[in-house]
Design a protein around this nucleic acid. Structure first.
Length: 455
DNA sequence: TCTGGGGTCCTAGGACCC
DNA sequence: TCTGGGGTCCTAGGACCC
């Protein structure tokens, strides 16, 4: 156990903990650790998850053995391959990661219900002594660490009086570390650390702070107000408080999703309008399917592109009704292409998003759902009427909606590649070449004529 | 070194309304 | 007739996080 400098080992049950106790758990090199757990022959060796050593892409996660060669997350795959030529590369197994992540989250929830999952491998837990929690925070942190270890992976934990202290603490001792900052010791713990150690200080802010002669969190804490305003804008006071270690935002459970997006970088740039339209249609179908899975629909659709020079641009449009069906919003996206692209321009990435999941519909629904602006079919048709699910599709009638839902079910059972509308399928043939190869055993489960004789 | 993919939040200008 | 100011929505871009 690392602490703020005092040797607290062995006295955790004796020294009382005054005030809030927030824990941050971070799974060590999570994806790579799971791969080493599942492939014993990879243990002790450099493993890289993500990317592809020959193609455009970056490292998602790498094992500690690979880090010894200088490989890091977000590093271009080509560079990682040069630094560590003998690494084992794997594309990753996301269903497996999700399942293991859920087990970790359940372990944490056994300790306290006040869990805030930040990402697949990271979560805050409020273990303040009181209503839900009786035991000493350090005892609980150690118990969580032991139970996670029983799953075959390790985690690093930071414990302190606030989320930002816990977060910074969790980074101090990796992997498999526990760093405790006892109440009252926050300022001393944070002061000597470089500005980048604080969450919310990225490359740009670091550069500006350094330019103003500020290098440590302690210097942020004591900087002039106008200096901090210059760098952090309206967040200036919050950042100073974070650097002092005083309480910041609470642990928030059940945060709702605000947007859903998918994007794709192509192995070679897109130059033709038809290719761009096909990619937009394919991404729209993916986003729509995720929206339906989450049972949300959004008013705003967005198109994003990245040019050959890596500059990006966006265009968006807000619709009159929320959408979760690509046949409703893909045409809008196709119309946005002209704002971002002209013949002769090379695109290396295309992205599609849907956001603004709830707005005036709910407000109008409070008064009976009879607003003139609402398309037919909206109103009090059940507990989900306020959530916008299925509303966009009603304009096309029940038959279309039924087809969409049947298609979703087929994809749930047979995978994403099993079904595709014309455009989407042609695009995949062209981009990957894999669908074409698989054509021999391709069966459209919705079309009896193409069904095999195996049932 | 030549940069993925999924997100959240903030800023700032313009349109529009009162 | 040419004007203030506040509020909200929409849009585009960018910083930051994992």
């Amino acid at each position: 156990m690392q602490t703020d400098g005092t040797d607290y080992a062995g006295i955790e049950g004796i020294l009382p903990w005054d005030g809030p106790a927030i824990l941050l758990l971070d799974l060590d090199a999570f994806f790579a650790s799971v791969e080493q757990l599942d492939h014993p022959e990879w243990r002790g060796k450099p493993v890289i998850v993500g990317g592809d050593r020959e193609r455009r892409g970056v490292v998602s996660t790498c094992s500690y053995e690979a880090r010894a060669f200088g490989v890091r997350s977000a590093m271009p795959s080509v560079r990682a391959a040069r630094l560590c030529p003998d690494a084992i590369w794997t594309p990753g197994n996301f269903p497996r990661y999700i399942s293991l992540s859920q087990k970790v989250m359940r372990i944490m929830q056994d300790v306290s219900p006040r869990l805030q999952q930040v990402s697949i491998d990271e979560a805050f837990l409020d273990i303040s002594p009181g209503r839900f929690v009786g035991e000493h925070p350090v005892v609980l942190a150690n118990r969580i660490r032991e139970r996670v270890a029983q799953l075959g992976i390790t985690c690093s934990i930071g414990l302190g009086v606030s989320k930002s202290v816990a977060k910074v603490a969790s980074d101090r001792d990796k992997p498999n570390g526990l760093t405790v900052v006892f109440p009252g010791r926050e300022a001393d713990f944070l002061a000597p650390l470089p500005v980048r150690a604080m969450s919310g200080v990225g490359r740009q802010a670091e550069k500006r702070l350094n330019g103003l002669g500020i290098y440590t969190l302690g210097e942020i804490a004591s900087a002039d107000e106008h200096i901090l305003n210059q760098v952090f804008g309206k967040n200036a006071a919050m950042m100073r408080n974070r650097c002092l270690g005083v309480n910041d935002s609470p642990v928030v459970t059940d945060e709702e999703v605000k947007s859903v997006s998918n994007e794709m970088t192509f192995s070679s740039d897109l130059t033709e309008r038809i290719e761009i339209e096909q990619s937009v249609s394919m991404l729209a179908a993916k986003v729509a399917r995720r929206l339906r899975h989450k049972e949300v629909a959004g008013y705003t659709v967005g198109l994003k592109v990245r040019y050959a020079d890596l500059g990006t641009a966006h265009a968006q449009k807000t619709l009159d009704a929320p959408v979760d069906d690509e046949s409703e919003f893909a045409p809008v996206l196709l119309g946005l292409i002209d704002q971002l692209w002209q013949p002769g321009i090379h695109l290396r990435l295309v992205g599609v998003s849907v956001s603004s999941f709830s707005r005036r519909v709910e407000q109008l629904d409070i008064f009976g759902g009879q607003g003139a602006a609402l398309p037919p079919g909206k109103g009090r048709d059940g507990p989900t009427s306020g959530r916008t699910r299925g509303q966009a599709g009603t304009r096309r009638g029940k038959g279309h909606r039924a087809l969409v839902e049947a298609t979703d079910r087929v994809k749930d059972r047979f995978g994403e590649a099993a079904v595709g509308y014309g455009r989407e399928l042609r695009f995949r043939e062209r981009d990957t070449g894999t669908i074409a190869q698989k054509k021999d055993d391709y069966r459209d489960p919705l079309d009896p004529a193409s069904r095999g004789g195996d049932d």
